[in-house]
């Protein structure tokens, strides 16, 4: 295991997140009650996804500048692990939503009608679908250089579309999801409770490092596989 200090930091921060995340005091809010602890898990998935997709687009641009297949492998693996974290964020959001947004006076089928109109959900789904399309596009091109070039260009477009779909449009429309009009609720210093910040920031760093760790393993494995092609 090389460069292991940040892996140790990742493990320490994650264990801290799981222990403090369950045991520390949280604000007592109606409707949310204990589910507010999902901030340490669900929200971190999206942060991690965003950072991994940023890594992916950086390596896509590097590929276009250098034409080295190594950068293409980096770019692809960052995108794959980013998708995994995005799907996890979406899935955990679906569970959390069904316990807090669903109208207790209506059947879950009727409240689904309201929940399905959520601009945040639709935006996040579009963003993920664009990245699914990235994978399908990549793997459908047999020629390696062409595949790397086309998918690098597509990656830049996909990253550019992340901003309207998950950052801008949900802010413009009314939504049940927090963070409608005044920016990101998790990053706003006035909005998030002090006690929660003590766990939330380490949690974001811990989860992101875990994502980077998994990505680095996948990259190293793929570099070994493609060794003869790279030389």
């Amino acid at each position: 295991m090389h460069k292991s200090w940040w892996k140790i930091l990742c493990v320490v921060l994650l264990i801290y997140t799981f222990i403090a995340g369950f045991l520390m005091d949280v604000p007592r809010l109606p409707a949310l009650s204990e589910t507010i602890r999902n901030l340490y898990f669900h929200v971190c998935m999206w942060f991690c996804m965003m950072i991994l997709f940023t890594g992916s687009v950086i390596y896509a641009i590097r590929y276009l500048r250098s034409n080295k297949l190594r950068d293409d492998i980096y770019s692809r693996q960052f995108a794959v692990v980013g998708i995994v974290f995005g799907v996890l964020g979406y899935a955990t959001g679906a569970i959390w939503m069904s316990y807090t947004w669903a109208d207790p006076n209506n059947s879950s089928f009727q409240s689904f009608n309201a929940v399905a109109r959520e601009p945040k959900l639709i935006g996040a789904a579009i963003a993920l679908l664009i990245y699914f399309a990235y994978m399908i596009l990549r793997d459908s091109i047999p020629d390696m250089d062409k595949r790397a070039r086309i998918s690098a260009v597509y990656n830049i477009f996909a990253y550019a579309l992340l901003f309207p779909t998950i950052w801008i449009i949900p802010r413009l429309l009314p939504s049940l999801h927090p963070g409608g009009e005044n920016g990101n609720p998790a990053l706003d210093f006035k909005d998030i409770d002090n006690r929660m910040r003590m766990v939330f920031y380490p949690a974001v760093i811990g989860w992101t490092l875990l994502g980077v760790w998994i990505t680095s393993l996948k990259i190293r494995l793929n570099l070994l596989k493609e060794k003869r092609l790279l030389q």
């Binding site: 109606p30 009650s33 069904s98 689904f112």
Partner: peptide
């Protein structure tokens, strides 16, 4: 299977929303 699991969870957890019932 994942989609099925989410559909299963949507029916539960519709408690009283007025007071914060913490564990």
């Amino acid at each position: 299977t994942l989609i099925g699991l989410f559909l299963l969870t949507t029916g539960y957890g519709q408690d009283d929303v007025n007071k914060a019932d913490m564990a």
